[in-house]
């Protein structure tokens, strides 16, 4: 029999369903807890796909009303130069 293919939950960081399961077994009860243990949601898309999937996995263990997303803005990438330039214009 062929080996079971890994199911990727967080594509950016290549974190699999098994990795997330292990994190939950280790005591993670929030997206942030899963993130600290696996690195999921920390890639370029900042959890836009995997956050929902992780929340669904957590839902079996936690009352979903209590889950705090722990999102760390910006939700979309920003160029450093644009942040700094904005300030220079304001000062003119």
């Amino acid at each position: 029999m062929s080996e079971k293919k890994p199911v990727y939950i967080c594509r950016c960081q290549e974190i699999t369903e098994d990795d997330i399961k292990k994190a939950i077994e280790d005591g993670a009860r929030t997206v942030k807890g899963v993130k600290n243990r696996t690195g999921a949601t920390m890639g370029l898309c900042q959890g836009r796909t995997c956050r929902k999937l992780i929340e669904r996995m957590l839902a079996r263990y936690v009352d979903m009303n209590e889950i705090k997303p722990g999102t760390r803005p910006p939700v979309r990438t920003v160029k450093i130069d644009d942040m700094v330039k904005g300030e220079e214009v304001e000062n003119e």
Binding site: R72, P73, P74, T77, V78, K79
Partner: peptide, 11 residues
């Protein structure tokens, strides 16, 4: 030298 990079997260 870091001016052209994109930021993805702040905390």
């Amino acid at each position: 030298g870091i001016r052209d990079l994109n930021i993805i997260r702040v905390f």
